[in-house]
């Protein structure tokens, strides 16, 4: 009996490892088949070209604006001041001391001889796109939560004006494609608002904010339904206990109902916010250079679509996975509480 169960256990364990092996085999075969297919169309993989789109070194040269001779070089800490004496007078240039390329007495030609030449790190276009995606997503999430909270509470209000407004908003937003909504925000509302502002002589609102508004309103509608479900899932006795202690509706919501409801809806909220990060890729169509649009631009110039789109997907994964981890952490912390 004992030896047999041990054998079974071993068998089970072996099966487990076999299937792990199958998993990795699958993964490797997918990668290989992509690589093989790419070879068939003579695609050259140039991964080494990718890092420059994250950060690159720019050559900076400082040149004189007059002809003349280096009269003096005075060093002050990390900076050196180069004085050039020309026919028309003298001029001074402050340059980094470590990157000096001239000495006292050198002849300098206008816009030609560099006084100093050094390299400087610059943020690449993919990084800029990633940053914009992050920024847009965070702002849209914050406003989405606020809109969702307010609308969710209005949705269960007994006041028909509030309730029906909330229902109309939620149904309209959930019933039309986000892409169409972005177009409406930018081409319709954007034109109207900016026209009104122009008439008043006020500066225009850039497309970024119409994009953020579209995303925030879109998310708000979904968050509202979650908030409503969360509030309704809290037992009626909680409201009764809070109200019986003399708390107003607002106070009982604030201290008793919402804290409990928000805890319950954290997992679906996380899913919604992850969706939002991915949906922000649609904003490229209204000239916002977020990650997807940035990638598209690099692809057109570099002609390395395979590497770049993989990298783009990976960057989205980094964002969504970090958010997912953060919210899971919050959830777990509340379980202890």
């Amino acid at each position: 009996m004992g030896s047999r169960s041990l054998l079974n256990c071993l068998k089970d364990r072996n099966y487990y490892y076999v299937w792990i092996g199958v998993f990795f085999l699958l993964l490797i075969s997918i990668v290989l088949s992509i690589y093989y297919s790419a070879l068939q169309i003579d695609y050259t993989w140039r991964w080494y070209r990718i890092p420059q789109y994250f950060a690159y070194q720019e050559q900076v040269e400082i040149k004189s604006e007059i002809d003349g001779e280096v009269e003096s070089i005075s060093k002050k800490g990390k900076e050196a001041v180069v004085r050039i004496k020309g026919l028309e007078g003298t001029e001074s240039y402050a340059v980094p001391a470590s990157a000096l390329t001239v000495e006292e007495g050198d002849q300098i030609y206008y816009e030609d001889t560099p006084l100093s030449s050094y390299k400087k790190w610059r943020v690449g276009i993919l990084m800029q796109g990633l940053w914009l995606t992050l920024k847009v997503s965070i702002i849209a999430i914050v406003f989405g939560i606020l809109i969702g909270l307010f609308t969710g509470i209005a949705r269960i209000s007994s006041n028909p004006a509030l309730k029906w407004s909330a229902i109309t908003y939620i149904e309209m937003i959930r019933g039309s494609p986000l892409l169409v909504q972005i177009f409406i925000w930018y081409f319709v509302l954007g034109t109207l608002v900016n026209n009104l502002l122009a008439n008043q002589g006020i500066t225009q609102i850039p497309p970024l904010w119409f994009g953020v508004a579209a995303l925030a309103c879109f998310t708000g509608a979904y968050v509202a339904e979650m908030v409503r479900a969360g509030i309704q899932s809290i037992h009626r006795g909680q409201t009764e206990a809070a109200r019986s202690l003399g708390m107003t509706y607002v106070k009982s919501m604030q201290h008793i109902i919402l804290p409990q409801a928000l805890r319950r809806i954290l997992p679906p909220l996380a899913g919604q916010f992850i969706s939002l990060i991915k949906d922000s890729s649609l904003l490229g169509i209204i000239a916002i250079r977020e990650l997807t649009k940035a990638t598209r631009e690099v692809v057109t110039t570099s002609l390395q679509p395979f590497e770049l789109w993989f990298v783009c997907a990976l960057l989205y994964l980094v964002l969504t996975f970090s958010l997912s981890m953060l919210l899971q952490h919050l959830e777990r912390r509340q379980l202890v509480v």
């Binding site: 037992h235 006795g237 909680q238 009764e240 206990a241 809070a242 804290p259 409990q260 805890r263 509480v337």
Partner: peptide, 9 residues
């Protein structure tokens, strides 16, 4: 109340 209704959080 019969069911206490303490605030669980």
């Amino acid at each position: 109340f019969q069911s206490f209704n303490l605030f669980p959080h």
